[in-house]
Amino acid sequence: MADSIEEIQKSKKTYLAVFGALLVGTVLTVLVAEAPGWLYWLDVGEHGFDKWDAIVGMLIAGTKASLVAVIFMHLNHEKKLIYWVFFGAIFFFACLAGLLALAKGSPIFDYLFYK
């Protein structure tokens, strides 16, 4: 991480830029979800909430979260070990969420069987 004073001064500008980006991202999420007035064209997918709204919303949230993790939490220059630990956890979270969704999505009571 930035240790010298100049570097820290420089990175303070980055922090402010990220701050701006996060604010913009937040407003954007709300606008995409609400699509008020003349911004109706922001309503992706069907009218109202649907999976596309969820995908876009999560993409924006993911980007914001990455910005926080990479810049604020200094993951852009962190030790290998930290990457292993943190991304390992995220991988196992993905396993949990993914397999749970899969289990929900494949019921043994296949409706074709009972049709």
């Binding site: 999420t29 979800a33 709204d53 919303g57 924006i60």
Partner: peptide, 11 residues
């Protein structure tokens, strides 16, 4: 919170 906000308020 970045994830909780859209999930609970907007979806």
């Amino acid at each position: 919170w970045i994830f909780a906000f859209p999930i609970f308020y907007l979806m």
